[in-house]
Design a protein around this nucleic acid. Structure first.
Length: 209
DNA sequence: ACATTAAGTGATT
DNA sequence: AATCACTTAATGT
């Protein structure tokens, strides 16, 4: 399993890679699978080898809101805080693309914090990075108008899937952004008139990246 | 041919 | 920006 060395070799020393290889369990998820559900107890943390994961928040009525995406080399900050305390997940994680990852039991990650300096800085950096992404998400929701949010959403999605043609319906977008389908349709039409995207049935091509 | 789902649009709040 | 009501277009059975 060389995947690990490819994605994390520059981060971790060999001994740590070796331990991860031995202890971690390799898993795959196909696109659109829910990996972590709200309320789940977290007993292991993931290291993303390939693909992208969408992190969502949900309100009491089941309405969703996309927070950010995880990409290869990332880990989920939520699981970190959940593994420390014994709390439930407050977010949902859905595979945006097909995903390959390694699950690490939570007991080890605490041990490694003291044994491996590279592990320690990786965890701390992950936290820092997630915090930035979260602030970015807050800014986006609080300060950007819907049309700008929408365009950013499309660009982000194109980015993580490495594909400028997005396979989504207006309805799905409206759910991710927590707005109505009608609004999304109107704004998409506007973006198309501005030549930023082109619309098709069930897909959208992003022109300005 | 008919039903279903996706998308476009005017009018109203 | 949300909702309603309605139309049109594409797709599935």
């Amino acid at each position: 399993m060389n995947q690990l060395t490819i994605n994390f070799g520059y981060l971790f020393e060999e001994a740590l890679i070796e331990e991860i290889n031995q202890i971690g369990t390799y898993k795959e998820f196909v696109s659109d699978t829910t990996i972590i559900e709200i309320g789940d107890y977290i007993k292991s943390m993931p290291l993303l080898l390939n693909g992208a994961i969408k992190i969502l928040r949900e309100d009491e009525h089941g309405d969703e809101l996309v927070l950010y995406y995880l990409e290869k080399g990332d880990t989920c900050a939520m699981t970190l805080s959940c593994c420390m305390g014994q709390t439930k997940s407050k977010i949902r994680a859905v595979a945006e693309t097909d995903v390959e990852l390694i699950m690490l039991p939570k007991e080890k990650m605490a041990d490694w914090l003291s044994t491996y300096k590279t592990w320690q800085s990786y965890i701390l950096q992950s936290y820092h990075h997630r915090m930035d992404e979260l602030l970015d998400a807050v800014d986006t929701i609080a300060f950007l108008k819907m049309d700008e949010r929408l365009f950013k959403y499309l660009k982000d999605k194109a980015m993580v899937t490495h594909n400028d043609v997005l396979q989504v319906t207006h309805k799905e977008i409206s759910e991710d952004l927590h707005t109505s389908r009608v609004v999304v349709s109107r704004l998409l039409k506007k973006l198309e008139n501005e030549h930023k995207i082109t619309l098709f049935r069930n897909s959208i091509k992003v022109l300005e990246l």
